[in-house]
Design a protein around this nucleic acid. Structure first.
Lengths: 120, 120
DNA sequence: CGGAATCCTCTATGATACTG
DNA sequence: CAGTATCATAGAGGATTCCG
């Protein structure tokens, strides 16, 4: 993203967490600690293997999650948040809170419009 | 987004601010107060009219920005953040700060890798 | 089990031209 | 000035198959 004032780095953070399932992945890892590939698939049945893999790779690339492979057959791979990745939780929490109040606000807006249509 | 624990509403907020130019639009409005359509175009020359319009409509739809049209020829339309939209600034600031430190962290990672390649 | 490879679809964005 | 209308395109995501 260009043409943003003051050398803004909002987009840097945004790019880390944008991706259809990245938030879900991070929240599951934050909640469960360590998870194997198929455990992630089980809690997110709608994600395809390909997308899950690519999201995990990208999060790993940014240092947000850690990937540990155990050289055995069948393979075993464990994912977890890094300390660094955990520092994102503050932002996620804030976004969650704002989202909740936003939904409440929209509710109020819609009620008001209904009222005005009925009584205006 | 589904399959997220605890009825999470992170995605609600994310959906508001995802869009190639939405962050830029919000930051310009936060910085300048009120701006006309073509003023926004001038500070963001890479955005096409169509995309700028659709982003503005979506932000307005969510109550984040306010659109005021003056019924005159030639038309005059002014955009500004709503009080409500301004409550997002906290999140944007936090994301900016995280982005800055993330870039610093990546720098360090890359330096370390160079060092290890030279001296390992 | 945890992928990689291939092919496909759909949506966000862009280019361009026109208008009240 | 502030849009709308059309058409085009890249890339994110999805479906399916195969593999060590």
């Amino acid at each position: 993203m260009d043409e943003i004032p003051d050398n803004c780095k909002v987009a840097t953070t945004l790019d880390m967490i944008v991706g259809k399932w990245k938030i879900a992945i991070m929240l599951h890892l934050l909640h469960n600690g360590t998870m194997r590939f198929n455990e992630l698939r089980k809690v997110m049945p709608s994600v395809t293997q390909k997308v899950l893999t690519s999201h995990l790779r990208e999060l790993e690339e940014e240092g947000i999650i850690k990937r540990v492979t155990y050289p055995q057959v069948p393979p075993k791979v464990e994912y977890s948040m890094t300390k660094y990745g955990e520092s994102l939780q503050m932002i996620l929490d804030l976004m969650h809170d704002w989202g909740v109040s936003h939904l409440a606000q929209k509710q109020r807006q819609q009620s008001r419009q209904l009222f005005e249509n009925d009584n205006g």
